[in-house]
């Protein structure tokens, strides 16, 4: 995945009304690296992801891809460069699995029907679901739906992938397959930001782990530094509760 880019967040602020959700977040993800964002519920992790592809516009601060600010880019064009995978999969239930993937290929990448179908099938094959191409999402298990959602994002050839608690809604026995796919993607050099409660994944796959609490990154570093020798008491308390 040679087309990956580096990602930096600089002092990102965002408030919903009077509620300050992000209060100056800094995060650096090197090209091809994987950053896992951990932290308690309501700490702003999912909100942070949405400022990267500007589903939410930061009030203050900057978002940079390969060192260049993207806040003035056309949001639709920016989002083509950034794939996103959601907790609830968010496949389009009224379309077949194949159409879920070809929709943006045709509309955004302007591929012809045959080419879009070929690309979609190639990515379905990659996640092991080419046999389900004509099924509706509701006919798939949660794990299969999430793999389709990943294929849908990858088919757009993104330079960065965002994962918003991608395995939190899955039955325990389905989590492994999705995590394996994400780890695979990470090894292939995709730049990834992964919001997760899967501490094992963070420890093994991440290059950087960032701990968020109350709208800021309290501590960030290599997984060993975070998990073995956490400095901040709040991080130590969080880890003692989730590990």
């Amino acid at each position: 995945m040679s087309s990956s880019v580096s990602l930096s967040l600089r002092d990102v602020h965002l408030a919903f009304g009077r509620h300050q959700v992000l209060r100056g977040v800094d995060l650096d993800v090197a090209r091809g690296a994987t950053a896992c964002v951990i932290g308690p519920s309501g700490s702003g992790k999912s909100t942070l992801l949405r400022t990267v592809n500007r589903l939410l516009e930061p009030d203050r601060g900057d978002v940079l891809l390969d060192g260049r600010s993207v806040l003035r880019d056309d949001p639709d064009a920016l989002r083509q460069r950034i794939g996103m995978v959601f907790q609830q999969f968010n496949l389009f239930p009224h379309m077949s699995v194949l159409r879920n993937i070809t929709l943006a290929l045709r509309r955004i990448r302007k591929l012809g029907e045959d080419e879009a179908v070929a690309v979609a099938r190639e990515h379905l094959d990659r996640v092991g679901l080419v046999a389900k191409a004509d099924a509706r999402p509701a006919h798939l298990s949660g794990g299969q739906q999430q793999r389709v959602a990943i294929a849908r994002a990858l088919a757009m050839q993104p330079q960065v992938m965002l994962f918003d608690e991608a395995t939190s809604a899955l039955d325990p026995e389905l989590v492994k397959g999705v995590l394996a796919l994400m780890a695979d993607l990470s090894t292939q050099g995709m730049t990834m930001v992964v919001v997760t409660h899967e501490m094992g994944f963070a420890r093994e796959v991440a290059d950087t782990v960032a701990f968020m609490d109350a709208g800021v990154v309290l501590e960030a570093g290599e997984p060993t530094a975070i998990f073995e020798s956490a400095a901040h008491p709040r991080l130590r308390r969080f880890l003692s509760q989730v590990l």
Binding site: R79, L103, A153
Partner: peptide, 15 residues
């Protein structure tokens, strides 16, 4: 229709 459907579509780059 869940707001997340709109969000997912926008995240793909659809207007």
């Amino acid at each position: 229709v869940e707001a997340t459907q709109l969000e997912a579509a926008r995240a793909l780059g659809l207007s």
